[in-house]
Design a binder for these strands. Structure first.
Lengths: 146, 146
DNA sequence: TTAAAGTAAGAGCATATTCTCTTATATCGA
DNA sequence: TCGATATAAGAGAATATGCTCTTACTTTAA
């Protein structure tokens, strides 16, 4: 009668696990490519975003990058410590703090750009345009915890 | 003449960033579902794997789950502290340590199973079988840093 | 204008992730 | 058997991630 046996937990079918696994491998690949300039993929993302947005608050940055607000704040710390970004008060809102790329940050980003492009190129070459396009489209349209 | 301007860094096109972002959202969704039983998605994965493999070394577990060896070792710590797994010496190899589910761990896993199934079900319902199948197939065949 | 509601962000806590260096044990060839 | 090589795993350091709680300011409604 034991219902307790249940169906075996097909953990290999876990969509979360599959996505996390892929993200880990991808991070290792990109981190390896960026290592010569001393940036992690997360840091590169933030610097690149700052280049585009010029000046943003922590909350805005977090939203753009799909990151928790507090995580974004913490991730900025090493970049500020290393002088790649500057964090100052907002002129219009006393609660907000404004993040901007420093010249050193812009230079670092410039140095990192070809390494990132090479990672992109290599990933695309390894998987073909079709697979890459499918990946991006599928990820983009995912509805998670609607 | 300034080549220095370069092409703008289309950070939105970063495959690594896209995958990480999706993985973060997915983790938050699954973690939320599992929260009532006090497990994170990573912990659930490891317990479920231990249920299937019965007894494994840290290295084996890491390989199975696609995780760095040292990460796996550290992730096991909270589970051992909470009595969900037992770590003992290997009978055949003095270097190796053997990980196994405790009765408490098995019970916790049993409690978590329906929550995980609900997360899977909801994700599948939100995205449709086609998209989910495409996602899994695409992730499975990805060649990263060949 | 003042009290209430809303928003920006830091602090503290805990887990997750990977790197390098180190130690202990196995194994294999000379 | 012993020395070289290989393997299992912990220690330490650093970043990444997200929670709750708290503080500081803003905005809004009475």
């Amino acid at each position: 009668m034991s219902i307790a046996t249940e169906q075996p937990l097909a953990i290999g079918k876990c969509h979360c696990g599959a996505l996390r696994r892929a993200a880990r491998r991808m991070s290792q690949f990109y981190d390896g490519k960026l290592a010569p300039v001393g940036l992690r993929s997360t840091q590169f993302s933030m610097l690149a975003l700052l280049q585009q947005l010029e000046e943003v608050s922590v909350n805005e940055l977090a939203r753009h990058i799909g990151l928790d607000r507090t995580t974004a704040g913490k991730n900025l710390r090493p970049l500020e410590r290393d002088g790649l970004i500057a964090i100052g008060p907002s002129a219009t809102d006393g609660r907000s703090r404004v993040i901007a790329l420093t010249p050193e940050g812009a230079a670092r980003l410039l140095a990192a750009a070809p390494l990132w492009r090479e990672a992109q190129r290599q990933f695309e070459a390894s998987n073909g345009p079709g697979t890459v396009a499918t990946l991006r489209e599928t990820l983009a349209k995912l509805s998670i915890g609607a």
